[in-house]
Design a protein around this nucleic acid. Structure first.
Lengths: 182, 182
DNA sequence: ACCATAGCGGACTGGCGGTCCGTTTGCGAG
DNA sequence: CTCGCAAACGGACCGCCAGTCCGCTATGGT
């Protein structure tokens, strides 16, 4: 990788990160804006990231490492309900801390969050936990339902709920769903 | 209202309805397409419906009457859990029967389903039911969570699940969430 | 029959994501 | 140090779309 290429790539990531941090609506940030802010031509932008979604994913990738770490840390020990709760809590925390970016990611590329690689992972993990708690019956659907409860636009919609209210809600939800039923 | 205006309005609704019925991706249908299919100028389109979202809402309004009826019918009687289940089931049925339209509605106008009038209604209804079943604690959040589980793009994502699988999932979910807990 | 005016249509605008291609630049080979 | 060439660059350009504008048309009350 040529030196200038690497430098430009970083410049773009940094600029985009700044822009997404400052914005309130992800699709107010155009690719031209990013290119300009990075002091780089549009062609360069697309050469490095292929398209808008690619850029967003790259941004997310950087930030997401912390998330992955937190999530990994929340895996071991305790009851299924506790693990599920920690997972969801961590997701909400992350999405509240990275509002615009996660909104952008979940709405990008004509809309579906379900086309995201990481969704598959989380769903698999959660399915396993649900299945462990109450058997395989409907476990996959319940995992989808739990994840749907922390979708970024719902988080956005309830943006002025205090942490405790979120916590109470998530706790009630996971406890209910993971109770062995009957 | 002048006769030609009324006629054009109907023509547009009919054409748009046909197009959305046939499409697989809502935003492949442009306003120009609709105007052309209706044999009407673009100006007319915007005069009647103000903007894309307005058109989609109008379409939805027509179809939605059946939905409202089904939902109203599902209100009385039985346990909270049964009522909630019937509500969600009806929503899923409707969304599966009107895939593209509901997708369009929930993603229109930069994304949030939560800006829809009908969402407020359903959420209020469901909140009441949840509250009745297990008290007011977190009832609002749980209602959001239940509705999130039937969001149109999740329905779309699981489009090839058979009815029984959906049914099992919804049943498990509502039973769990509405169990009085403790 | 007349005509004020509600309604019409489609050319036009602005802004977007994405492409193309002539120019510049980094850098390994000689 | 120099040369050559591929890699990388940048910004003009394209096609598309939602939404606007305004000169024209047709309706329906008088």
């Amino acid at each position: 990788m040529r030196a200038d290429a690497a430098r430009n790539r970083e410049a773009v990531l940094a600029a985009a990160d700044r822009l997404f941090e400052a914005a309130t609506d992800p699709d107010r940030i155009s690719m031209d804006d990013v290119a300009a802010a990075a002091g780089v031509g549009k062609g360069t932008l697309f050469r490095h990231f292929r398209d808008r979604l690619g850029l967003i994913r790259a941004l997310y990738g950087a930030r997401g490492e912390q998330l992955q770490a937190s999530l990994a840390a929340s895996l071991p020990g305790d009851s299924p309900a506790d693990r599920a709760l920690r997972l969801l809590r961590e997701l909400v925390r992350f999405k509240r801390a990275n509002r615009v970016l996660t909104l952008a990611l979940e709405n990008a590329g004509s809309g579906s969050p379900y086309r995201n690689e990481s969704y598959e992972e989380w769903h698999a993990t959660l399915s396993a936990i649900v299945s462990e708690a109450r058997g395989p019956e409907s476990a996959e659907f319940l995992a989808h339902a739990l994840l749907a409860a922390v979708r970024s636009d719902l988080v956005e919609h309830l943006r002025d709920w205090p942490d405790e209210r979120w916590d109470a809600g998530l706790t009630a939800l996971t406890r209910s769903v993971l109770a062995s039923g009957r």
